[in-house]
Design a protein around this nucleic acid. Structure first.
Lengths: 231, 231
DNA sequence: CATTGTGAAGCGTTTCACAGCC
DNA sequence: GGCTGTGAAACGCTTCACAATG
């Protein structure tokens, strides 16, 4: 009889780093590297080795003491933990500048997030083809979400339409949203939202840039990916 | 004689939220609202009121007990703290899909980050005009950075060129980088880097999406902007 | 008397340091 | 001997709770 799989709770901070490790491990794997130490992975990920070990320990004890981690196996485990064993089709709302760039960005599909559809409220935008996907009207959203079993939506509308876009996505059955509009979305409990706000990122840089005058600082914010060397 | 301004150290987490408050306050101001309570601001920002108060307290004691905060004054203080009293011209490296979308995105300039230039290594891309800016060759980077006093660079290249782009930016004199390439950049100490990685965001959503099966969860990751109501 | 400003408690994350193991 | 896995300490952020106050 199969052992009951106990779903470990993984800290948010760790969840946010697993994709980084995964990408690096994938690169290593394609260079035929079979084994990697926490130190090696940490170096490439721009974090410290203890953090890597603690992060990976939440997945289970998959390393070998005195040796390191088997790359291929770790890739498999991280993918499984992140739910990347199957594709997650996404639907993009907003076929403006950004929506088009996102739809045309192959990295999406390559990483397991094929664009199932892109919609816009503007009839003039409907019909054109971007990255192999035809722009459809936003009223078709429920149909796209249901037929393609989409659970992740991307909001790439102007700020004034973002809340409406989010509500339409939720009504259509989407349960996770990636929001590019500079707006705080109000969504029902149980819906996951992550946001990417370019202006916010620049303003954070501005803060550290401003402080720079006088004495240099070393690193910058949560988002940290700073590291010595180079240039 | 002027009092020596003591530069308070503001926690990173707070710095990351100030831009959100700023945007909301700006919206309120344009709706002629003159005063706002921590509760009101918290509601709109999707955080709790104690957090707003603590965040704002790092700027100084600018509220009025029993009343709230004067919107215009708070806008001024946050802008000053974030170094947004003047523009920060940015230079974009990479005139592909994303670079073009960024250059064509007016929100940049509107928020005080005018695009001083966009460069590409590909001679074929040089010369075309995007968002009113002509694409120039990457060799012109030092000249653009110096003449326009650029201190923030945006990396919008394919992953394989991102490290090179970062090094060129640093050599040209840029001290802050916003990185859109799915790569951990190695930069010298003292250079600020923030990254925006779409695939990572989607993979994080995938994790919570996967866990959803069975029992619903409420919120999602660091990036939190989840809130009750609507739909 | 509503609302700010803030010590102090609570909590999640990072880092240390070393026992455990190959 | 080298590297993992992990308790425990250190740290930073969030939240509480209430005194201070216009």
């Amino acid at each position: 009889m199969p052992v009951e799989r106990v779903r470990r709770r993984i800290p948010e901070a760790t969840v946010a780093r697993l994709p980084i490790y995964l990408r690096i491990l994938g690169e290593r794997a394609s260079e035929e590297v079979e084994c990697i130490s926490s130190e090696g992975l940490a170096e490439l990920a721009g974090v410290n080795a203890a953090k890597v070990r603690k992060d990976l320990s939440y997945l289970g004890s998959y390393g070998t003491r005195g040796v390191g981690y088997e790359v291929a196996f770790l890739v498999y485990q991280i993918r499984r933990e992140l739910g990347l064993t199957h594709d997650w089709p996404v639907v993009i709302v907003g076929a403006g500048n950004l929506g088009q760039a996102l739809a045309g960005y192959n990295g999406f599909g390559e990483r397991g997030f094929p664009v199932a559809g892109i919609v816009d409220i503007e009839p003039a935008k409907v019909g054109s083809v971007i990255g192999g996907v035809r722009v459809r009207h936003i009223d078709d959203l429920p149909q796209i979400v249901q037929s393609r079993r989409v659970s992740i939506g991307v909001v790439a509308t102007p700020p004034t339409s973002a809340q409406d876009a989010a509500e339409r996505l939720v009504r259509a059955g989407v349960t996770s949203i990636l929001n590019f509009a500079p707006v705080v979305l109000a969504v029902p409990r149980g819906i996951s939202v992550r946001k990417v706000d370019l202006a916010v990122e620049l303003q954070i840089l501005s803060y550290y840039e401003q402080r720079r005058v006088g004495v240099g600082l070393q690193a910058v914010g949560s988002n940290d990916s700073t590291r010595g060397a180079s240039a």
